[in-house]
């Protein structure tokens, strides 16, 4: 099979997988509603309990799973391509940690209780602040190493401030809420969360998706890419701000969900001939599929325990990543 045909097949299979998982996500939940009933209720005009559950609980959850998964997969693939480092992941720029800090501060100060959108908005503010700090540190001619280091510094600081908030938390319930929020989940999100985060994610996707060709030329290093007509300032701007917009919005509504953005590009890279521009759409679909699957699993494994999505992705993702490293090491020897 030619490289092109295989690429199209990979995209088609992934798209079908996402469609199936999206439908499954709509029909799995504590309220045992049949598949046909639930889909029919989604498109009907009645205002019964089933329609309410479908539209107000399951639909936003499935949409957020799809969008956040795609965000993590896409931004992971972009950052690995831009930094030419297979260990890069969306959290690397410090955006997840800062968005988490924003959310934690909202819980800590009671803003989230006083005002329903207080938490996601504070998280977005945290993400925006982080990206400006990273961009200012890296500067115009800043290399990729400066960006990584600035991201590590911002992440550490945000982590420290989060610990401080936990440390000084006046009541144990707030501390518990903070900890649970940070684990990352899609439970009890409403359409308001979708409307709040969707515009940021869409803008971020457009910015990141435009980087396909430039990332291809970056395979040969920054100098070669520039000599082939790539403006590195523009690439840096789009990569940093695009990641900030979509990952910031994703973290704002779902907390930090790890390993999807790191592992998904790894798995798919060999299937698309390693070309970054081909990895972007594949990784976006793959990320959506993985997150939808994980969110279905948390509902199936422990329906009564409220198992957190971020915990599951980490438990499954970390050993899997270890195996990947083992396999790559053997391939390199």
């Amino acid at each position: 099979m030619s490289e092109n045909a295989r690429y199209r097949l990979v995209l088609a299979v992934l798209a079908a997988l996402v469609a199936v998982l999206f439908a499954m996500s709509l029909t799995v939940g504590p309220a045992a509603i049949g598949f046909a009933d639930s889909i029919a209720a989604l498109f009907s005009n009645d205002r019964g309990a089933i329609a309410l559950i479908m539209r107000e609980i399951r639909l936003p959850r499935a949409i957020l799973g799809l969008m956040i998964g795609a965000t993590l997969g896409l931004s992971g693939a972009v950052l690995q391509g831009y930094l030419r480092n297979p260990l890069a992941e969306p959290g690397l720029l410090g955006i997840s940690a800062s968005a988490s800090l924003g959310a934690v501060l909202a819980i800590y100060t009671g803003l989230s209780a006083a005002f329903p959108l207080g938490l996601p908005l504070a998280a977005l503010a945290g993400a925006v602040l982080a990206v400006f700090i990273v961009q200012a540190m890296a500067g115009i001619r800043g290399g990729t190493l400066t960006i990584i280091l600035a991201g590590v510094a911002v992440s550490s600081f945000a982590g420290a401030m989060t610990s401080l908030a936990l440390n000084l938390s006046p009541n144990p319930f707030a501390a518990l809420e903070i900890v649970f929020w940070m684990l990352g989940a899609l439970t009890d999100r409403s359409m308001t969360h979708v409307w709040l985060s969707a515009p940021f994610m869409l803008v971020g996707w457009v910015m990141l998706a435009s980087l396909g060709r430039p990332l291809d030329t970056l395979t040969l290093g920054a100098d070669a890419a520039q000599s082939m007509g790539i403006g590195m300032r523009r690439v840096q701007f789009l990569a940093v701000f695009g990641t900030a917009a979509c990952v910031g919005a994703a973290t704002a509504v779902a907390g930090a969900i790890g390993f999807v953005g790191l592992v998904v590009p790894h798995i798919l890279r060999p299937l698309v001939g390693s070309l970054p521009s081909r990895l972007l759409p594949a990784s976006a679909l793959g990320g959506a599929a993985v997150l939808l699957a994980a969110d279905i699993l948390v509902r199936l494994i422990a329906p009564s325990k409220d198992l957190k999505l971020g915990v599951l992705t980490a438990i499954v993702g970390a050993p899997f990543f270890l195996w990947l490293v083992w396999k790559t090491r053997r391939a390199m020897l």
Partner: peptide, 23 residues
């Protein structure tokens, strides 16, 4: 421009790599 270091970040096929020159 042909840089001095022979950097190739990803295992891209030779044909695709040469095609990058058409960017």
């Amino acid at each position: 421009y042909l840089p001095q270091d022979h950097e190739i970040a990803w295992p891209v096929s030779v044909e695709r790599l040469v095609a990058l020159g058409r960017a």
